[in-house]
Nucleic acid binder design. Sequence first.
DNA 1: CCTTTCGATGGAAACGTTTCCATCTTGCCG
DNA 2: CGGCAAGATGGAAACGTTTCCATCGAAAGG
Lengths: 377, 377
Amino acid sequence: MMETFPGKRRPTGLDAGGRIGMAERAATIKDVAAAAGVGIATVSRVFSGTGAVAAGTRERVLAAAADLGYRPSALGRGLRTARSGGIGLIVPDVTDPFCAELTAGVLACARTLGGHVVVDAAHGDPAREAEILDRLVEQRVDGIIAVPAGDESGWRGAARVCPRLVFADRALPGLPEVPAVLADDAGGVRALVEYLAGLGHRRIAYLGAAAPGATPGVRERAFRDAHAPAGLVLDEDLVVPARPARDAAYAAAAGLLQRRDDVTAVLAAGHLLGEAAVLVARELDLRVPADVSIAMVDDVAWAELCDPPLTAVARPARDMGYRACELLLRDRARRGPAGPVLLPTELVVRGSCGALRSARPGGRPSGRSRPHAETIR
Amino acid sequence: MMETFPGKRRPTGLDAGGRIGMAERAATIKDVAAAAGVGIATVSRVFSGTGAVAAGTRERVLAAAADLGYRPSALGRGLRTARSGGIGLIVPDVTDPFCAELTAGVLACARTLGGHVVVDAAHGDPAREAEILDRLVEQRVDGIIAVPAGDESGWRGAARVCPRLVFADRALPGLPEVPAVLADDAGGVRALVEYLAGLGHRRIAYLGAAAPGATPGVRERAFRDAHAPAGLVLDEDLVVPARPARDAAYAAAAGLLQRRDDVTAVLAAGHLLGEAAVLVARELDLRVPADVSIAMVDDVAWAELCDPPLTAVARPARDMGYRACELLLRDRARRGPAGPVLLPTELVVRGSCGALRSARPGGRPSGRSRPHAETIR
DNA sequence: CCTTTCGATGGAAACGTTTCCATCTTGCCG
DNA sequence: CGGCAAGATGGAAACGTTTCCATCGAAAGG
């Protein structure tokens, strides 16, 4: 059992100076079999859990393996079983709190199902998205979860190559056959509009993300559609799009708030837009919510730290990731035309939206001396 | 239904009929070779870029490959070359802004070097850390970047098994042989203490992360050490540790601020602690910075959104990730005792720290009516 | 006591690559 | 005009696993 490793120690010659410990070469199943005095098939059976192995034999194998520091190679196994146990996750940006939360959900689910996750960020670039996808396919991941950046044609081709594909957060209208896990953004926006309307606001501005191409803006449509039922009339001039970047968002918010001083409430369709709104309001010396109310979609951590804390629509990012992963890995069998999974959102009311005094139905006070309007919480 | 997805129809690989159309089964190098009328070695040479191939042959191979939708399998290649091209990243929490930023850096670097990244979160649990590590080794990643959670003994064993290991953000004192990329936290904390002392603060509290076991607290030591040079005397009662979790941080901050109303400044050793300090201050109706100044380590996004914006020490998280990855993948050759890479931090002064009126050198005003102290920016 | 059956085990063939080595063309130089 | 070098190419052996299949032994049933 002592028998040192035979031949071939440093295939590539790298790493010339000895490494920290020993580990001449990683032990293989063959080494373990030899050390335990059994066949490799038996070792495989012990580790893969398949088939029957006598208790005594199993112990011997385990002991030998532990002794040699043996770890089965996922490469060998993957090659044989045509299954890597990995799943790919493509998000726009790992730094984005929403994406990060979604990622956490995916990780949690993958963990329970015994898989690993290969993450990459496409930064909204379709070319980069395609490239990442390519790499993932090459890695033979078992499935891919993507928050697609709107380039429909790219994904159409992808859907054919992909082992399994699930969209999260956004779906592509042209690809209804790809399962998707979405938040009920429309419901969230509607709730927000209703809430603001209920506070007396009549001129609500919408700061929205200008989708690069495809997405027709579920949120924007919801914003529009919510007007009539709430007794509001839509002012097209108050629907302002912005590229999903900090500078663009800031510019859009600044433009809006400077151009229209009759706006009493801003609905930001994302945390980046919300951030911009808060910053611009501060820059313009507008008090929140006295001078202008602000609310946004995405209840990120800083919403609570703001002063005043920001009213927001919470979307279950983590759950979405979890569900997407589950959809990918678990339900291999049933495939209904079930349509996308829609997860509920929740309106979290904080202090950033004030009631409008009915005495002055339209318009925001011009001076700074106006007393605080009633705030919730 | 048409059975939309190509979900592996022939588990045993029989592939009965001729597969002319699209990918019944993923095309292999053999298929391409046959289609192009060449040997598999030639196909391999075309795709791996090694060896010489006649221009005409190359074209034929490429055409055949494109036709068949061939993607070389990373599993086969990895098995043969004993190199997966993947790197593992273990962070405490992907949701944490710092970790997310670090991850982004790793992704960026891996991308340029043509590798993929397997991410997982250990949530400060050594057992989980070990488990993740195990999986990564099993995946045969080429290297691992970890933000270790302090369990030294666990990592000691790991360092032996690991292909290559680099620590980021934290190093383990017992494992000096593991390369590390760190931020100059000590310098940051020192700068913060000096800054606060310069504003006239004499009783500065330290809200620090209580490392579960090992880490002796570089930041805490720096905090202590900075006192004398700044002409301050350390009050042990003002050094309060907290587990790195929201509730614990909040409890610690609340305890501190309620117990000691003579504290005029709080130095939070992390953004979670900073968050807690801000929240508690608000809860206790303490005005920032009039009643208490707050500053923290880690310049996360919300620091600027706070009211007032928070003074913070910025640490180059993204760079750290990038450098760590570089260290892992690039410099296979030179291994000096170079010691950890130390990246500089930067003090970002915002409005959360006020100058203390010399008229009332010690102690924070008890009432709320005190006028604002001078604020910077 | 013989036969049947079943559990435990080992051998060997795949899985899809890369790469060594041998073979076959050429083109070139002497 | 012959031999040789060099370029192009194909065959085949590994890489580390799983799994089919065959073998062997023993227990159980007759």
